[in-house]
Each structure stands twice: as C-alpha cells, then as structure tokens.
C-alpha cells in the first residue's frame, strides 16, 4: 500500500503509511508509538495505554510513560494506581506507608489510622 491519506489507515489515524503506521491522528486522539519486534509504528487512541498518561496540546496529544512503580498516572509525578507491592499515597507509590498512616492491603493504599 503506497503511503497515502486515510485509505487503509487504522481507525484513529488521519494520515498513515505502510511502514510507519499512523503519522498523524484525527482530532482529540492521542498519538502513541508501539513496538512490535523490530517494528515501531504510530497508533491513535482515545486514551493512552496502561502505564502511560496523556497530555493535550493545541497541535498534538501525546502519551508519555508513568514512573516505573506506577500502573496508571495523571502525570509522570502523580500516580493513580501503583504496581503490585507498592502503596498509593497522594499520587506517590511507596513501599511502606509514612508514620501516621496505615497500609490497607485490600486497596493497596495508605489510609488514615481509624481509632
């Protein structure tokens, strides 16, 4: 397929090509790079994949990685769900809850100590 506009492009692409996949996205979608073996292609999604967070800009919407200890995040420095083995406390992933808070092993969060 010769690189051209919109024919045979993945759903969210505005432009794409055989080898590179999406080159640009339809409005309001997030551009993500996906690696499959040696290949690296562009994909357009309505929300970023797990382990990534989205930032919207006037000209492009991009996904970027959360920190290594975080599964889903709002920004790189603010986690919304930690990887297993970590407790979530105000956007941070901790191996141990700080003094004054207790570890809730069901929700994997640090919560106020209920007396």
């Amino acid at each position: 397929m010769h690189p051209n506009v919109s024919q045979g492009c993945q759903g969210g692409c505005a432009t794409c090509s055989d080898y590179n996949g999406c080159l640009s996205c339809k409005p309001r979608l997030f551009f993500v790079l996906e690696r499959i073996g040696m290949k690296q292609i562009g994909v357009c999604l309505s929300s970023c994949p797990s382990g990534y967070y989205g930032t919207r800009y006037p000209d492009i919407n991009k996904c970027a990685k959360c920190k290594a200890d975080c599964d889903t995040c709002f920004t790189r420095n603010f986690c919304t769900k930690c990887k297993s083995g970590f407790y979530l406390n105000s956007g941070k992933c901790l191996e141990k809850c700080p003094d004054g808070l207790e570890a809730n092993n069901h929700t994997m969060e640090c919560t106020s100590i209920v007396h």
């Binding site: 919207r56 800009y57 006037p58 709002f74 920004t75 603010f78 919304t80 105000s90 956007g91």
Partner: peptide, 8 residues
Amino acid sequence: LQAMTLAL
C-alpha cells in the same frame, strides 16, 4: 480531589 486539569 487530588489532581485536576483545566488546560486548553
């Protein structure tokens, strides 16, 4: 509320 964006 801990995180909010009103950007754009």
